[in-house]
Amino acid sequence: MDEEELRCFGGTPMRKGDYVNIVRGLFARLLFTSHAFLCARQYSHMKGTKEGWFMLLLLIVVYGEFIILIVLRRGKEWKWFFLSILCYLLAVVPTLWTLEIEALNTRVENSMKMGEDDCGIKTMMHNKTQTVKMEKISVLLGLRMTDQEWSLVLQQKLLFVLIIGRWILPRGPITSDQLSQLLLVYIGIGADILEFSTEGLRLPSVQCNSTVIIVILSVWTASLLQFTLSLTLRKRPKPRQHVKGFKKFKFLAGTCCATEVWSILVTVCMQDGPFLLVRIYLIIFRKVFNQLLLFFAFKNLLVIFLQCYRLWVLLNRRLDVRRSHRKRVALKIANVRKVEEGINVRKVEGEENDIDESQV
């Protein structure tokens, strides 16, 4: 059977690039599955039940969506949203929540046994040296870690899998240049997310505060959702379209930097803004004075200011485009009126000449 005869169910011929997209999409989903399998295994070992394996049922949606993409889009991902990454997060994040909650309960029990009001340095050292509560498991390369250490390792792998998986997935409508910039930004975002969760959850003053830990985990979970969106730093320039009048004005006004604006809003609302609020709360109300905490708080504040400045620049650029186009439209209208007036004058002169000739 020739390659031209191989067709998808929609009747569109399958090209070589379509097969590449299918292979890349399948490999990325297998990467998501491997990490989700590791998280489910650790969850089941910690709980002593098989509930963790039921979380893998969400991956059925991932492969079902992949079949739909093959049928309808020839392996290409959706334009603005990655359902596969969302299902992967839904399968993995509850496991990490459970590991952190179990570590919290262990710290609270140790604190009560030692007669301390909060989890201080002594309690943290007691957690490391106590052998009863240190459930260990041997996996790849003979690694033996506690539940809290497993939580940190799985969080690190989660961010690496998200970045590598986004790299492997078909890039869709964005260019290779835009994808490379997006991946570099993802690395910075992942480092900030990892620092926020690890350093915030391990502060001595919040080690046994369940409310603060749940808030930190909630903000951390919300920040991961930005990986499900396909937003680029700058929009790909489109070829100029030959349209006239107000249609051209509408085209220019609607296509100027819209993607950049959404990207800025997502970054501020889902990462830097919530991170800054949590860090300010820890500094002011929990009396946590840490050099790293202060540094990252100022960093989030500076990023918000710079993003707002960038948003202001983009909006001014959009207004400038509108003003310039209005001037061009007004100039064209004025030129058209002058031409019409000239034509009318010529018609009047021609009619007068015809009258004179008829009289002669």
Rank of each mutant, 00 (worst) to 15 (best):
residue 137 I to Y: 14
residue 174 I to T: 13
residue 109 E to L: 12
residue 174 I to G: 05
residue 104 L to T: 00
residue 31 L to D: 05
residue 242 H to F: 02
residue 158 L to G: 00
residue 149 E to C: 08
residue 226 Q to S: 10
residue 226 Q to W: 01
residue 14 M to I: 14
residue 192 D to S: 12
residue 203 L to Q: 10
residue 31 L to A: 09
residue 109 E to V: 10
residue 311 L to W: 03
residue 172 G to E: 08
residue 233 L to G: 05
residue 272 D to I: 06
residue 102 E to A: 11
residue 38 L to T: 12
residue 61 V to Q: 05
residue 288 V to M: 04
residue 220 W to M: 04
residue 26 L to G: 02
residue 177 D to H: 14
residue 297 A to I: 08
residue 134 M to Q: 15
residue 272 D to V: 07
residue 345 V to E: 05
residue 94 P to R: 00
residue 297 A to P: 04
residue 116 E to F: 10
residue 175 T to N: 14
residue 65 E to R: 12
residue 273 G to A: 04
residue 257 C to L: 06
residue 6 L to T: 09
residue 75 G to D: 02
residue 139 V to S: 14
residue 68 I to W: 04
residue 11 G to D: 07
residue 27 F to R: 04
residue 112 M to F: 08
residue 92 V to H: 00
residue 342 G to T: 02
residue 155 Q to R: 09
residue 310 R to K: 12
residue 290 N to A: 08
residue 208 C to Q: 01
residue 250 K to Q: 08
residue 68 I to M: 09
residue 262 W to S: 03
residue 268 V to L: 09
residue 114 M to P: 01
residue 84 S to C: 02
residue 354 D to Y: 08
residue 18 D to G: 05
residue 27 F to Y: 05
residue 28 A to Y: 00
residue 44 S to M: 12
residue 40 A to T: 01
residue 2 D to I: 09
residue 259 T to R: 09
residue 349 E to L: 02
residue 258 A to V: 09
residue 176 S to C: 15
residue 316 N to P: 03
residue 123 T to G: 07
residue 86 L to N: 05
residue 326 R to H: 14
residue 255 T to Y: 02
residue 165 G to Y: 01
residue 360 V to L: 07
residue 195 E to S: 15
residue 110 N to Y: 08
residue 202 R to H: 11
residue 339 V to C: 05
residue 281 Y to D: 03
residue 29 R to P: 02
residue 327 K to M: 10
residue 245 G to K: 06
residue 277 L to H: 06
residue 33 T to C: 08
residue 39 C to M: 10
residue 69 L to E: 12
residue 341 E to Y: 11
residue 98 T to G: 05
residue 64 G to F: 09
residue 146 T to F: 05
residue 245 G to S: 03
residue 153 V to I: 04
residue 318 R to P: 08
residue 138 S to T: 15
residue 8 C to Q: 11
residue 178 Q to M: 11
residue 214 I to K: 10
residue 320 D to L: 15
residue 108 V to A: 03
residue 82 F to H: 12
residue 12 T to S: 07
residue 162 L to H: 00
residue 22 I to T: 01
residue 97 W to Y: 03
residue 146 T to S: 14
residue 38 L to G: 03
residue 27 F to D: 05
residue 136 K to A: 10
residue 146 T to W: 03
residue 260 E to M: 07
residue 121 I to W: 11
residue 222 A to K: 13
residue 64 G to I: 12
residue 150 W to K: 01
residue 356 D to Q: 07
residue 216 I to G: 07
residue 273 G to S: 02
residue 17 G to N: 14
residue 309 Y to T: 11
residue 277 L to I: 10
residue 109 E to N: 10
residue 163 I to R: 00
residue 237 P to S: 04
residue 294 L to N: 02
residue 256 C to W: 03
residue 61 V to R: 04
residue 163 I to Q: 02
residue 92 V to R: 00
residue 44 S to Q: 12
residue 132 V to T: 13
residue 78 W to N: 15
residue 266 V to F: 08
residue 180 S to A: 13
residue 291 Q to A: 04
residue 59 L to C: 02
residue 163 I to T: 02
residue 286 R to I: 10
residue 245 G to M: 03
residue 324 S to H: 14
residue 179 L to F: 13
residue 62 V to Q: 06
residue 182 L to P: 01
residue 157 K to A: 11
residue 35 H to T: 04
residue 54 F to N: 08
residue 62 V to H: 03
residue 204 P to H: 04
residue 333 I to L: 12
